[in-house]
Deep mutational scan, measured.
Amino acid sequence: TEKQERAIEYIRRLGYSEEEARRILKKANGNPDLAKEIARRIG
């Protein structure tokens, strides 16, 4: 989804690889607090 793409872009800007960014997002899917934090940061 567009939100996922924005989140991946944001995480990659922090210096993670695409693969790492996707792994972090997968974790965020099972972790509402982390997901909220990422969403808050990407606006």
Rank of each mutant, 00 (worst) to 15 (best):
L25A: 02
S17G: 04
R12Q: 14
Q4G: 08
K27F: 14
Q4L: 14
E19V: 10
E2G: 10
R6T: 10
R40S: 10
E37C: 07
R41Y: 06
G43F: 14
G15F: 01
Y10G: 06
L34F: 07
K26F: 10
E19T: 10
K26H: 11
R40W: 05
E2M: 05
T1F: 14
K27Q: 14
K3R: 13
K36T: 08
S17V: 02
E2P: 10
A21H: 00
D33S: 10
G30F: 11
G43D: 12
R13I: 09
K3C: 08
K26R: 13
R40G: 08
K27D: 13
L25T: 01
E9R: 09
R41Q: 13
R22D: 05
E37Q: 13
L25P: 00
A28P: 01
G15Q: 01
R40K: 11
L25I: 07
R40D: 10
R6F: 08
N31Y: 05
L14T: 01
P32L: 11
I24H: 01
Q4M: 13
G43W: 13
A28F: 04
G15A: 01
E19Y: 11
K3Y: 08
I38P: 01
E18V: 07
E9L: 06
N31P: 01
L14K: 03
P32A: 13
I11E: 00
E5M: 14
R12D: 01
E9C: 10
R41K: 13
Q4W: 13
L25V: 06
R22T: 06
E18Q: 07
L34D: 05
E2I: 12
I38N: 04
L14Q: 04
S17M: 03
I42T: 11
Y10P: 03
Y16K: 02
I24G: 00
A39C: 03
Y16D: 00
K36P: 02
E2N: 11
R22K: 10
R41P: 04
Q4T: 12
R6W: 09
Q4Y: 09
S17W: 02
K36N: 04
N31L: 06
E9T: 05
E18I: 08
A28G: 03
I8A: 03
R12C: 10
E19P: 07
R6N: 13
E20T: 08
K26P: 00
I42Q: 14
G30D: 07
E18Y: 09
R22F: 08
R13D: 15
R40L: 12
D33T: 11
Q4D: 09
I42E: 13
I11S: 00
T1H: 13
E18A: 07
Y16N: 02
E2D: 14
A7D: 06
E37F: 05
K36L: 14
Y16G: 00
I11A: 01
T1A: 13
L34P: 01
R13G: 15
A7T: 10
A7R: 02
R41A: 12
G15T: 00
R41F: 06
I11F: 06
A39L: 04
D33M: 08
Q4S: 10
Y10D: 14
G30Y: 12
K27S: 13
K36M: 15
I38A: 04
E37M: 08
L34Y: 07
K26S: 11
D33L: 08
D33K: 12
I24Q: 01
I24R: 00
A7C: 09
E9F: 04
L34N: 05
L14E: 02
A21G: 03
G30T: 03
Y16I: 06
E18H: 07
E2Q: 11
R23F: 10
E9G: 05
R40Q: 11
A39Y: 01
A21T: 04
L25C: 03
R13A: 15
A21Y: 01
E2V: 10
K3G: 13
R23H: 13
R6P: 06
S17N: 08
Q4N: 09
I8S: 02
R6H: 12
E37P: 01
N31F: 05
R22V: 08
N29Y: 09
I8G: 01
A7Y: 06
E19D: 12
I24P: 00
A35E: 02
R22L: 10
K3F: 09
G15D: 01
N29I: 05
A28S: 06
K3E: 15
P32V: 12
A21I: 07
N31M: 07
R23L: 14
Y16S: 01
A28R: 01
D33A: 11
A39G: 04
A35C: 05
A21W: 00
Y16C: 05
A21S: 05
A39F: 02
G30I: 02
K27T: 13
E20D: 08
D33Y: 08
Y16E: 00
I8H: 03
E2A: 12
K36A: 08
A39W: 01
T1L: 14
N29H: 11
N31E: 07
A28M: 04
N31G: 02
L25K: 00
N29S: 08
I24F: 08
I38Q: 04
A21C: 03
R12E: 10
G15C: 04
L34Q: 07
K36Y: 11
P32I: 12
S17H: 03
I8K: 04
I24S: 00
I38D: 03
A35V: 03
G30H: 06
R40H: 14
E37G: 07
G43R: 15
I11M: 11
E5N: 12
R13N: 15
E18N: 06
G43E: 12
D33P: 04
L34E: 06
I8D: 03
R6A: 15
R6L: 14
I42V: 11
E5T: 09
K26I: 12
R13W: 13
A28C: 09
R41C: 12
R40M: 11
R13L: 15
E19Q: 11
Y10F: 09
I8R: 03
A21Q: 00
R6D: 15
K3I: 13
R22M: 09
G43I: 15
I11N: 00
D33N: 09
E20P: 00
G30E: 04
S17A: 04
Y16W: 07
E37V: 13
R12M: 15
K27I: 15
